[in-house]
């Protein structure tokens, strides 16, 4: 579904990504691991258009077509059906939890300035979106705080809101940047179970996560990065035993 070829990203003299190749298979849950500073989040930023790479291409395969989405602005990447969360939650602070979800829904008729004044054009769509949003909030366990301002949530709840927002956006590929960092173990398992449930409905996932003890139980394929390069890939068991991976974590 997503094909990353030879991506290079440079910040001044520092080469954050040094020729990264990666393939995210359709319908699978792919995990990306690696020590701090290995370039995981930078890679996501390149794919979603937040950063532009110095070299390399990003291809998106969908509907039998291949699109070169390298360097596209974020809103166009989104339009193709790619959605992401942020490692440090980038929620809409002064919106309520519910509004955070409604704001990201796709194809809203009421977002044009002239349509905005004509409630009849969007009220029905808004009702449907609100229903879906309530279902998603109940699914991730934020149903009781739907009308609270987002800034008043706990750090863990903000993480859940990030996940809920990604689900709300109706994506084909969801990229999660550390979805369970700082979340208690039982809830972390529940989150990965939710990921699997949504995945079963046909949504592809690409997850960055440090807590491999939990994550490895739920994913199909694993990439490991260190110092801006892919150092290992394969099934979870194989990567877990790869001495290069172990060394990068201990040495890094």
């Amino acid at each position: 579904m997503l094909e990353i070829k030879g991506i290079v990203k440079q910040f001044g003299a520092f080469r954050a990504l040094d020729g990264v190749d990666m393939t995210i298979e359709r319908g699978k849950v792919t995990l990306l691991i690696g020590p701090n500073g290995s370039g995981k989040t930078t890679l996501i930023n390149v794919v979603t258009g937040v950063y532009k790479p110095e070299a390399g291409r990003v291809y998106f395969h969908d509907d039998g077509k291949t699109l070169d989405i390298t360097g596209w602005p974020p809103h166009k990447v989104f339009a193709q059906g790619i959605v992401r969360t942020f490692q440090i939650p980038q929620i809409f602070q002064k919106l309520t939890v519910m509004e955070n979800l409604l704001a990201v829904a796709r194809g809203q008729a009421g977002e044009g300035v002239l349509n905005a004044m004509r409630e009849g054009r969007w009220a029905k769509q808004e009702e449907e979106l609100a229903e879906r949003a309530f279902e998603i909030l109940d699914l991730v366990g934020l149903g009781d705080v739907w009308d609270r301002y987002a800034y008043s949530l706990s750090a863990g709840q903000m993480k859940l809101l990030e996940l809920a927002r990604a689900l709300m956006a109706g994506a084909k590929l969801i990229i999660l940047d550390e979805p369970i960092a700082g979340i208690p173990i039982a809830q972390a398992h529940a989150i990965f179970q939710t990921i699997r449930d949504v995945n079963a409905k046909g949504v592809t996932f690409w997850v960055v996560e440090h807590r491999i003890d939990i994550a490895f139980k739920y994913v199909d394929y694993v990439y490991a990065m260190a110092s801006g390069r892919v150092i290992s890939q394969g099934a979870p068991d194989a990567v877990a035993k790869d001495p290069k991976v172990i060394e990068s974590y201990i040495g890094g």
Binding site: V113, N115, A116, W122
Partner: peptide, 9 residues
């Protein structure tokens, strides 16, 4: 409206 909400987001 959804427009106003998008602005605040």
């Amino acid at each position: 409206s959804p427009f106003g909400r998008a602005l605040r987001a």
